[in-house]
Design a protein around this nucleic acid. Structure first.
Lengths: 149, 149
DNA sequence: CCTAGTTGTAATATACAATATTACAACTAT
DNA sequence: ATAGTTGTAATATTGTATATTACAACTAGG
């Protein structure tokens, strides 16, 4: 089981919106071409990012812009935005019918919850330390090196 | 997207095997009853745990025993054992066709990989710090408290 | 040796979620 | 008005998790 590609798609989209902000025609078709993902998927990912307040969009004329600088958007912000359903239920899917009459089955959930939370928190804390600026800087450097070669 | 319930099932099963080790008839049907999961699923989970060297089983007569003490089996050991396919591919599912001709699409994978690895490593390092002994101790204490009440 | 009970595993079914696709109303700039 | 775009619903397709059935391989005990 893996974290949805919506997460890496969202990062890609946000970095691209900033990278190409001086060009016009940064619409969902362009982003679909850059990511290799269906334009409707792009629009739904953007829709979730907008709900989370990470960017603004405009109907009709097209185009999107970030709500705040790349350095102030963390992986955690994006994860919460595009994977919010599971984010509420937690990272781990617990088996749903442990037997309450069994000494183990009756307490395993309670005994595990705090430990699973430790793991999830460790992941989320690391996500909070990484920003889109870190990604954009590497992309820009790599693109430049390629140009020079 | 969540980490498979096989993970919590495996923890439940291992703790139960140790908890009930002095009783007989700890077969897959009994464990299915304790977890509320199909016995064949129990056997496949156990099969993976056996492949990972975490327990030994016996055909025909039934029964399983841990290969080493609870205190020497970490969440990470179990995660690797029962989620090994995804463990090889990483925690994150990358979108598969970013456009190599695009400055962003052509470098996003390389620019992201090390950062995604940081997140995955943070999760795994926390998993390595938690053992089945921690879980078993809490289960035993809770079962005792319930008995006294 | 034979029988009952069990494990290991394949094959299949069912359920659910992710992604792709089609379609179209709402909207904006020109 | 028109062309192009977003937002979103509806549906299809695909992939994966879990459930279920079936049975060969095996073990212990009579």
């Amino acid at each position: 089981m893996q974290i949805t590609s919506r997460f890496t798609i969202a990062i890609h989209v946000l970095v691209a919106i900033e990278y190409f902000k001086d060009m016009d025609r940064i619409n969902s078709d362009f982003l679909a071409g850059s990511t290799g993902v269906n334009p409707v998927i792009i629009r739904t990912v953007i829709s979730r990012l907008r709900s989370a307040g990470l960017l603004h969009t405009q109907r009709g004329s097209g185009g999107a812009e970030l709500a705040r600088p790349l350095s102030e958007i963390t992986f955690y912000d994006i994860y919460q935005a595009v994977d919010s359903v599971d984010a509420q239920e937690g990272l781990f899917h617990f088996h749903e019918r442990p037997n309450p009459a069994c000494p183990v089955g009756g307490h395993i959930h309670q005994a595990l919850d705090d430990k699973l939370a430790l793991v999830q928190t460790a992941m989320e804390e690391q996500m909070k330390k990484i920003t889109l600026q870190d990604v954009a800087a590497d992309v820009a450097q790599m693109a430049l090196q390629k140009k020079e070669a």
